[in-house]
Simulated scan of single mutants.
Amino acid sequence: MKILLIEDEVKLAGFVQTALEQAGYVTDHETDGAAGLQAAMVNSYDLVLLDLMLPSQNGFDILKNLRAFDNQVPVIVLSALNSTEQVIKALDAGANDYLKKPFEMQELLARVRVLQRQKTVKNQAKVKVNDLEIDVYTRQVKRGDKQINLSNREFLLLEYLMLNPDTVLTKTQILDKVWNMSFDPGSNVIEVHLYQLRRKINEGFEHQHIQTVINRGYTLKTVAVAS
Rank of each mutant, 00 (worst) to 15 (best):
L37P: 06
G217P: 11
N180I: 01
T31G: 04
T31C: 06
A13I: 06
V223G: 02
V168H: 08
L5G: 08
D61R: 12
F15W: 10
V141P: 07
Q208C: 02
Y45V: 07
L50D: 02
W179S: 09
N82G: 11
T172F: 09
L220V: 01
N96E: 10
S56M: 04
K2V: 13
E104W: 04
A110F: 12
K100Y: 08
E107K: 13
S44N: 09
D32W: 06
F69I: 02
E133W: 05
I62S: 03
V114F: 12
D28C: 04
T120H: 05
V129Q: 13
Q140C: 06
G59S: 08
L157Y: 11
V10F: 09
R113N: 14
E21Y: 03
N43H: 07
M53H: 07
A80V: 04
K119Q: 15
H209Q: 12
S79Y: 09
A34D: 10
T219G: 01
E203I: 00
Y45Q: 05
F69Y: 05
Y160L: 12
E21Q: 14
D8Q: 04
E159K: 15
V141W: 05
A95E: 02
I6C: 12
L4Y: 10
K119G: 14
Q86V: 01
L115S: 01
A224M: 10
V16N: 13
K100A: 14
E107Y: 08
F60G: 04
I210E: 04
S182G: 03
N149V: 13
I214F: 11
L197I: 02
D8H: 04
D131M: 05
G217D: 14
I76M: 08
L132V: 13
V48H: 10
Y137E: 15
H207L: 00
F155P: 03
V189E: 09
K177S: 06
L20I: 03
Q140P: 03
F155E: 02
N71H: 09
S151N: 06
R216L: 13
A110I: 06
G36Y: 11
I6D: 12
N215R: 15
V141K: 09
I76F: 04
N130P: 09
A39L: 04
L91K: 07
D145P: 09
A80E: 05
D97H: 09
L63F: 01
E85F: 03
K101V: 08
M105Q: 00
V223F: 00
M162W: 08
R111D: 12
N149W: 10
T84C: 01
I6H: 10
T120S: 15
R117Q: 15
L169S: 11
K101M: 07
E7M: 12
R139A: 08
D28F: 03
D131E: 15
E133H: 05
Q140N: 11
I174M: 14
T18I: 14
I214D: 13
R216H: 15
